[in-house]
């Protein structure tokens, strides 16, 4: 049986932990709202970009000079994985899910005899992969301390990937991120970004059959549009992941706050029991002392 004093300190320490977790939960909730607004605002551009890209891709399809960003290098040898994680922990399984998915994907590809390279985005993912797959890590990017993700951040990643492709260092690139489904659920998504993924089935018709004229020609536009489209895909993944991170942290901190509450309840019960037992013991001592006289 722990002493009364020990129990008291224990209760106080759990109470202060609870204060911290509930504050973190509220911070995450407000950040989540901001991240959701930002993700929402990025949608129109991405949708229109996709529409244009689809029209262009259809018009250069089959051409031997189609750019590698669109059709790949023709090989399927070297895969680049881009896991997107948060820079901070305390968000439940948010970061480890990405780490695990990346590890499994890397294993699977290597079993198929392919080479894997990893470009880690976010500090947590970098730390994890440095332990697990250090030899495959070719670089890392982190936005720790940045208040707001900007499009230029995504462009930076896009440029790096494009450069690697142009240098013949990679054939296929896949981005692994947490897609924000709801506050309590983030879905680990593996999305291929190079070569550009084929349009989803049944949606090819919605270019409404319009035959566009191009100025200048298709290929010049494509050469400029594709890096931009790549950056947009990365940008969306980053935003989804940011919203997911705050959602995951909110849920994790909510659970932590509740667990702390349960623990306080249990400890208080023990404390009160011990206190009563002490009083009873003292009374018995007094009474039996009086009887002995």
């Amino acid at each position: 049986m722990p002493s009364l004093k020990a129990l008291r300190t224990r209760i106080n320490s759990v109470k202060s932990t609870q204060k911290i977790t509930s504050a973190m939960k509220m911070v995450a909730a407000s950040k989540l709202r901001r991240a959701q607004v930002q993700a929402e605002a990025a949608r129109p551009y991405a949708e229109r970009m996709e529409r244009m890209l689809r029209a262009l891709a259809a018009s250069v399809a089959g051409s031997p000079t189609a750019p590698p960003l669109l059709v790949g290098t023709g090989a399927d040898k070297v895969h680049l994985l881009i896991p997107v994680t948060a820079d901070r922990g305390l968000a439940g399984a948010f970061n480890s899910n990405i780490g695990r998915a990346t590890r499994n994907l890397a294993r699977k590809l290597e079993n198929e005899g392919k080479t894997v390279k990893i470009l880690a985005v976010g500090r947590k993912g970098r730390d994890y992969l440095r332990r697990e797959l250090a030899s495959r890590l070719v670089g890392d990017i982190s936005y720790a301390g940045k208040r707001r993700l900007e499009f230029t951040d995504a462009q930076e990643i896009g440029t790096r990937v494009t450069q690697m492709l142009a240098n013949g260092e990679i054939d296929v690139a896949t981005i692994v991120y947490n897609r924000f489904q709801s506050v309590i659920s983030q879905v680990v998504t593996e999305q291929q970004i190079i070569p550009a993924p084929p349009p989803p089935e049944g949606e090819t018709a919605d270019t409404s059959g319009a035959i566009y004229e191009y100025e200048p020609d298709e290929e010049t536009i494509l050469a400029r549009l594709l890096p931009q489209a790549l950056a947009i895909q990365v940008y969306r993944a980053l935003l989804e992941s940011a919203a997911g991170e705050h959602g995951a942290r909110m849920t994790a901190m909510d659970n932590a706050t509740r667990n702390a509450g349960d623990m306080i309840k249990r400890l208080s019960l023990n404390y009160n029991r011990a206190r009563q037992a002490n009083i009873t013991k003292e009374l018995i001592e007094i009474i039996s002392g009086a009887e002995a006289v």
Partner: peptide
């Protein structure tokens, strides 16, 4: 007419004519 940037929708409204600076 719609003008969008990667970060947000900047403008969306009907106009009678718009002159855009095309590359040529």
């Amino acid at each position: 007419l719609e003008i969008v940037s990667p970060e947000r929708l900047l403008l969306s409204r009907p106009v009678d004519m718009v002159v855009i600076p095309a590359s040529e």
